[in-house]
Design a binder for these strands. Structure first.
Lengths: 348, 348
DNA sequence: AGTCGGATGTGAACCGGTAAAGCTCCGGTT
DNA sequence: AACCGGAGCTTTACCGGTTCACATCCGACT
């Protein structure tokens, strides 16, 4: 009956409005060269026919694309639960939407797959640029992607991101603040459950933790590197709490592990925060649904994403200036941190 | 120095390989018409020059796109924390990746924006099809998107999705199972904290809950509709537990609200599961990081997403057959459900 | 010897836009 | 009267692929 869809093109609009394709193009791109009357007429016809310019054709001829790419490389299981990314993505989107640009998302298994993907996307002119996350030390993406000239913004400390423009938070300072806060509460044995050792920011935080602890003259705090998920967070916590000289406070590298840690504490009969203080990172709703609520190093992740997107556009347009630091995470005390228990208290 | 990027095109490859554009195209699409020797040579040159066909140009001429769209309409705050979507998306991706197809993601504020977005994407030939989620009763997307002929697969009960092919889980049966399980544990006053009333599956679950409770001769169970987030989940739980005849078991419509509910119970001095049983929905890691762990109606969300993607391809290719039901969520008992407390137990 | 047919390619048209040059009026200058 | 400049369009040449009708060559068959 209706046969193939027979979709309407610029030619149909032009014919119906009694003008040339060029005129329609000018009108739709809000360029001078057509009178207001004609412009109106063209729009009316377009509306009537239900026409919108083909993004494909448009970007073929204009050599511009309004899609940016994001590849996420953590295991799906983990991505699902970590609130960080969705919030981050929504921040990116908030900026993209203004420029009616869209986000191409792909979950990949490893860095090689990620590099191959970006290469295909870029060479295939599918994306105008990309957002790179989860930098490791000597990240292989830096040379590979720089070689193909992919415009990209890197989320991570400038020391890790090569010549890609970086957007980052000052994790070192934040870790310092966290430790000083706990020390002020009288804690002298503080541990840290960190992310994977290869991840660049893990190393930065670990080093900051070590130096702050030392600077304050606290006991050398144990640090455990994990895979960022709840299982490893629980295991690390258990290991810390079973040690003879168990810590009175633990700092976590994300909120999932902190929640899991709270579960372990409960399971071992320790009362949070009386017996043990817990401090999460990447504050999200997750920290507020538990009982007690979790103190955290908060972070406006949405805004972070938005800033990343803004910088990406600068890169794409070639107007990029310097590196961009976004506000340092700040401490949000809630129910999971309290003065150290008396027996472990600060010596007079 | 290097001037503009000067990206390599099919013409460069053809010239270098000493053949015509057409030959290169044939070779790259694995079509007959070029000898093996020539094909090899072309591939070698392409590799040498770092060329990949432009997706833009390719889809302009072939009239096909390898991108599918997904618009998510819940508030970002909520999306971030709800593990469901990331898991769902990763399931979709697992199928898309095989066909080297990508996912275009956008977060929207409301249904109108969503409709406008899909319309633009489709008319602009940006996507080959779309995944529609969160159906409401008399969903406005059904007429609007059907009118523009968007190929799409609907996630939701067929009674809600109009003529869009549906992929759904049998929520009614699952709710029945949940209630029967609790009844078997001796609970006679069971409540339910549901999602937004407008959402189609909320209505379906509510009705199934009502009829199962009635069928088993239990007390009429209170049901509260919420906005799906942790605040409302907590509030609803509080309201249920403060009532004179408080329930001995509560069924939640997702896992976030269940976790929040557990927090409220703790805050009110009720011990889960001794005083109160809780049952979550959309089982995710979240249910395993709390203490006690949450019993839940589990659901292979990843596989669900994969099935959705498969059906979408059928729709796009016009080979779609019947509606697709994926396995009904099954009960996964954990630490948050137990026999009803004696004082509320089943009468002899 | 003549022809048929498959394998291997070529060339040009086309997809649906954009961009830049060109053409036409038309009022205002010189 | 000849000239100019700008507003308002039209024409035309791309963009980088795909596709299809048509050339060419070569061995085989009658």
């Amino acid at each position: 009956m209706s046969g193939p869809p027979e979709r309407v093109t610029i030619k149909d609009v032009a014919a119906r409005a009694g003008v040339s394709k060029g005129a329609v193009s000018l009108a739709f791109n809000h360029k001078p060269g057509v009178s207001d009357a004609t412009r109106e007429r063209i729009f009316a016809v377009a509306r009537e026919l239900g026409w919108a310019p083909s993004a494909t054709a448009r970007s073929l001829s204009s050599q511009r694309v309004d899609i940016v790419g994001l590849a996420l490389c953590r295991p799906a299981r983990l991505l699902g639960i970590e609130p960080f990314y969705m919030d981050f993505i929504s921040g990116i989107e908030s900026v993209l939407a203004d420029r009616s640009c869209s986000l191409l998302l792909r979950l990949v298994r490893d860095v090689d797959e990620e590099i191959a993907l970006y290469r295909n996307w870029w060479r295939g002119r599918m994306i105008a640029g990309a957002v790179l996350v989860d930098f490791r030390q000597n990240d292989p993406r830096v040379p590979s992607l720089q070689a193909i000239g992919l415009p990209a913004v890197a989320v991570g400390h400038p020391s890790l991101t090569g010549s890609f423009p970086a957007v980052w938070t000052d994790d070192a300072t934040a870790v310092g603040e966290a430790v000083r806060y706990l020390a002020a509460l009288g804690h002298r044995r503080i541990a840290r459950v960190g992310g994977p050792a290869e991840l660049g920011h893990s190393a930065i935080r670990a080093e900051a933790f070590r130096s702050t602890v030392r600077g304050l003259g606290l006991e050398e705090g144990r640090q455990i590197a994990t895979g960022f998920d709840e299982k490893e967070g629980a295991r690390a916590t258990r290991s810390l709490l079973l040690a003879a000289d168990r810590p009175t406070a633990i700092v976590y590298d994300n909120d999932i592990m902190a929640v899991a840690g709270a579960g372990v504490a409960a399971e071992m009969g320790l009362v949070v925060p009386d017996d043990l203080s817990l401090l999460a990172w990447d504050d999200s709703q997750l920290c507020r649904i538990t009982h007690p609520t979790l103190s955290a190093m908060s972070h406006d992740v949405h805004r972070f994403g938005a800033e990343v997107a803004r910088v990406l556009f600068e890169v794409i347009e070639g107007t990029h200036t310097g590196p961009h630091q976004v506000p340092t995470p700040t401490l949000t005390p809630r129910g999971s941190t309290a003065p150290a228990p008396a027996s472990h208290g600060r010596p007079a």
